[in-house]
Design a protein around this nucleic acid. Structure first.
Lengths: 111, 111
DNA sequence: GATAGTACTTTCCAATTGGATAGTAACGCA
DNA sequence: TGCGTTACTATCCAATTGGAAAGTACTATC
């Protein structure tokens, strides 16, 4: 049986979560950052398929929700490092369950 | 530490999962169905904000991924009942973790 | 005879998203 | 002199999404 059995209050918190994580990129970016801080170019290479424009937009949204940190180093050419915050890292379990479910889904439906 | 530490294969299964669950409605629909089978009108009332067109489209996508069942009764006016499949119910843990995280997120960031 | 009810589908139109491409600042290096 | 580098931002344009509203089939009810 699922948590709260469809209770409206539970639905609200799921809505909150989905709002902060909307789109197909945010969780993948967070996952990429889960293995350590990365720079813009590294992320753009690791998160296959994302364009610069979208990556830039997603990083801003993630920063606004305090899921990642953005640190600028005063070098030339400029260096910017993104890292996951404690709050972002607390998505660990969501990511984990999504991973397991994705595996099962692929086995069952896709292939 | 997050599962797999950013391993590309883990990222793939997360991608698979996100693809089946994309958009802000699918998980909310599944959550609504987690408390028992529902008809179209019930879902449209319960999943606040969704329009008929979008609900219809989402239900089709969920059915295609075998996350829900669609059963038509030969009555007038027509009756259609949607219910969650076993595969759909296996998202229980994802929904649960998302719920907990949403609660924490609201407390920390939203208000 | 008009209205209500169900589960959609269709149409129209506005808004958003998304991709490709190029530009910017400022320095090191050949 | 001029190219490469980084982290973006800007622009243009095409494609997709999303909402509002009405339509459909058919019966039961007032």
């Amino acid at each position: 049986m699922l948590t709260g059995n469809g209770c409206p209050k539970t639905a609200l918190s799921i809505r909150d979560a989905l709002e902060a994580l909307e789109g197909r990129w945010k969780l993948l970016i967070l996952f990429a950052l889960s293995s350590g801080p990365k720079r813009f170019r590294q992320l753009s290479a690791e998160v296959t398929g994302i364009t610069d424009k979208v990556l830039s937009k997603e990083l801003k949204a993630l920063e606004m929700n305090r899921l990642i940190n953005r640190q600028v180093f005063d070098t030339f050419p400029p260096t910017v490092e993104y890292s996951i915050t404690e709050h972002g890292a607390s998505l660990e379990k969501v990511l984990e369950e999504l991973h397991y479910w994705g595996l099962a889904h692929r086995a069952k439906i896709i292939g």
